[in-house]
């Protein structure tokens, strides 16, 4: 589950990228976050991956409270999410197999785990026959599928994709979205950040629209798919404290 409460982020330049953001994404949801350039989508992505921290508000992802998370717990948190980028971020000196295996190696997975999981992910993403190819020998769509396989191989609970089809043509975009939908069907929460309204409209999923750092519309707010969500105790108590504080202010 992803839960944001009153989250605000202002960069050192003085730009307030996100303002008083409240957002809840339940386990197993497929959500698009859309909006124009500068609407705060990428800041939201960085907040969710804990690349940056907010000045105000709290963020909970997969039961990790990103406010109070200890530095040495951050790697464990990041293993619970998978990230996909517009520019794929593949290692060009390694072939497809090694790019996917890389994600397992850096978390200290055993040789057996790597030999089992990597072929499974390559099969899932339809890249089994290209495992020896280098990234530059693949099309954009194939490169993005490698990136998705790498994001999935550590079995994350959430996939965060920042403009995953930004560099792809229509056919490849459809392929990637189909793949993400299949992954979501298997139970993984998928959050896709995009500025493409056309793609969003064809998918019929929950759409969160942002503008000037705020959520201006949410097609699926308060409609959890997986039933009621049990919040961690510390979140509940923090929510209570916040409500009391607000009452006092009023």
């Amino acid at each position: 589950m992803i839960l944001l409460e009153d989250v605000s982020k202002t960069y050192q330049t003085g730009v307030r990228a996100v303002k008083d953001l409240d957002l809840r994404i339940n386990d197993g949801e497929f959500v698009f976050v859309t909006g124009k350039s500068g609407s705060g989508k990428s800041t939201l992505f960085k907040l969710l991956t804990r690349e940056i921290t907010p000045e105000e508000g709290s963020i909970i992802v997969n039961d990790f409270d990103l406010d109070s998370i200890r530095r040495r717990q951050i790697p464990r948190f990041r293993r619970s999410i998978g990230v996909v980028f517009q520019d794929f971020r593949l290692l060009n000196d390694r072939n497809v197999y090694e790019n996917v295996a890389f994600a397992q190696r850096v978390i200290g997975a055993s040789g057996y785990e790597i030999r089992t999981n990597v072929p499974r992910m390559l099969k899932l993403t339809g890249l089994s026959h290209k495992y020896k190819n280098m990234p530059y020998e693949l099309s954009g769509g194939e490169q993005q599928r490698v990136a998705i396989a790498r994001a999935l191989v550590n079995q994350p609970r959430v996939i965060l994709a920042d403009e995953p089809t930004g560099n792809l043509d229509e056919a490849n975009t459809a392929e990637i979205m189909k793949l993400l939908e299949d992954i979501n069907q298997m139970g993984t929460t998928v959050v896709v950040i995009t500025h493409s309204r056309a793609m969003v409209e064809t998918m019929h999923k929950r759409v969160i629209t942002m503008d000037k750092g705020r959520i201006v519309s949410d097609s699926g707010a308060l409609q959890p798919r997986g039933g009621s969500v049990v919040l961690p105790e510390d979140v509940k108590s923090r929510q209570k404290r916040r409500i009391i504080r607000r009452r006092e202010t009023l």
Binding site: R72, P75, F77, R79, S80, R89, V106, I107, N154
Partner: peptide, 11 residues
Amino acid sequence: IMRLIGATDFM
């Protein structure tokens, strides 16, 4: 990439 995948500082 390592950082975002969840590699530790040590790694």
